[in-house]
Amino acid sequence: MQFDVRLFALYRERAGSAVVTVDVPEDATVGVLTDTVRAMHPRLAPPEVRIVVAVNAEYADDDQALNPGDEVCLIPPVSGGR
């Protein structure tokens, strides 16, 4: 399956693009997809940082199965406030 994965903020800057195209096996999960993106863009996030993923505008766990046509977004950690 192929996905156009949207990247936001810091991830977009580090990848040099707002969207990356990722090929994963038919039975791929969110975890497989994020591992693939990390391999494509090693500077995206350190290994100890969990990449937050939204699938179809809902937060997704690493074991969630992906389906053709899913909209996938990677959201970096956010800080702020006082």
Rank of each mutant, 00 (worst) to 15 (best):
V37S: 03
R12Q: 15
R43C: 01
T21I: 12
E26Q: 13
C73R: 10
T36L: 02
D23Y: 00
P46Q: 14
F3P: 03
R50S: 09
L44W: 06
Q2A: 11
P77A: 08
D4W: 08
A28H: 09
E58D: 13
R14E: 03
V72R: 02
V78R: 11
P76S: 04
R43W: 04
A60C: 04
F8L: 15
V24T: 12
S79D: 11
V37D: 01
S17V: 08
R6I: 03
A15Q: 06
L44Q: 03
G81C: 06
V49L: 12
L33P: 02
A39D: 12
L7Y: 01
N56Q: 09
D4V: 04
D35C: 05
R6S: 07
E13H: 07
E71D: 13
A15R: 07
V20M: 10
N67K: 11
V52F: 05
R38P: 03
T34E: 00
V19M: 14
Q64A: 13
M40E: 12
V24W: 12
H41W: 09
P25I: 09
V37M: 05
I51L: 13
D27R: 10
V19P: 00
E13L: 03
R82T: 14
T34Y: 03
G31M: 05
R38F: 05
R38Q: 05
G16R: 08
L66P: 00
Y11P: 01
D27M: 06
G16V: 09
S17L: 03
L10T: 15
V30S: 03
G69D: 11
A18C: 06
Y11Q: 04
A15E: 08
D27H: 13
P68S: 12
A45G: 05
S79H: 11
